[in-house]
Design a binder for these strands. Structure first.
Lengths: 110, 110
DNA sequence: TAGTGATATAAGTATATAATTATATAATAA
DNA sequence: TTATTATATAATTATATACTTATATCACTA
């Protein structure tokens, strides 16, 4: 059970198409920045800045592997359960993941 | 199941402390504008503008009764189910309703 | 060690947002 | 009718946000 102010802040973070898409993708599979740049067709700084905002709020974690930085959801975040019930309503992320697999991108960055 | 862009827009609407509180209160009980002004301790135009935004997006309905305008949730909205599962995580609205009942405000506006 | 690729950060800009103040409208009450 | 109350809207302002461009950092590789 959350306080309204904190919940509003979390919802504001998700209330952006780019960030919601990133979160929905990470909910399916970890990704490095360059994969997200490809999938969302946005500039690298734009993606990095959204990731930073998500990270600053504890929603995602980063792991460095070679020259790549992989992001994943922080499953221990207080709001993780609420986010999961939101993701359950989303239609599109599978489509993104399909693209990602079609392009064989996961292999490129491993 | 929702498309990400529309879902992000809905989450952005909820991603504001004032609007989320209004929605959580309306989820418990219908309210007129003056009650919300009292409960949230904000100016009347500020509340009206938030209500307009919610109404423009179809999330709330209005009913005129005498000189008051009562607002209620639009239970037929496509995103009503998602919102319900968000509200289920919120702690505070009961507290607002308690205040509202303590002050006997419901009687004033009937 | 120099060069390349992946990512982060800083600065600047344009747009969006939420508030205030002032005013309009609409219904009721005197 | 006039005054009052409830609400909406318009104009303004201040702040927040998301992007771009430019640059920095850091790891790998030739």
């Amino acid at each position: 059970m959350y306080h309204i102010e904190e919940a509003a802040n979390m919802l504001k973070l998700l209330g952006d198409k780019t960030r919601l898409t990133i979160m929905a993708i990470l909910n399916e599979t970890d990704c490095c920045v360059c994969e997200l740049v490809e999938l969302l067709q946005m500039s690298q700084p734009a993606i990095s800045q959204h990731l930073r905002k998500l990270k600053d709020n504890g929603l995602v974690k980063e792991t460095k592997r070679a020259q790549w930085v992989f992001y994943s959801l922080n499953k221990k975040h207080e709001f993780y359960p609420m986010m999961q019930s939101i993701f359950a309503y989303l239609l599109d992320p599978k489509e993104h993941i399909r693209q990602l697999k079609e392009k064989g991108m996961r292999i490129q960055c491993e």
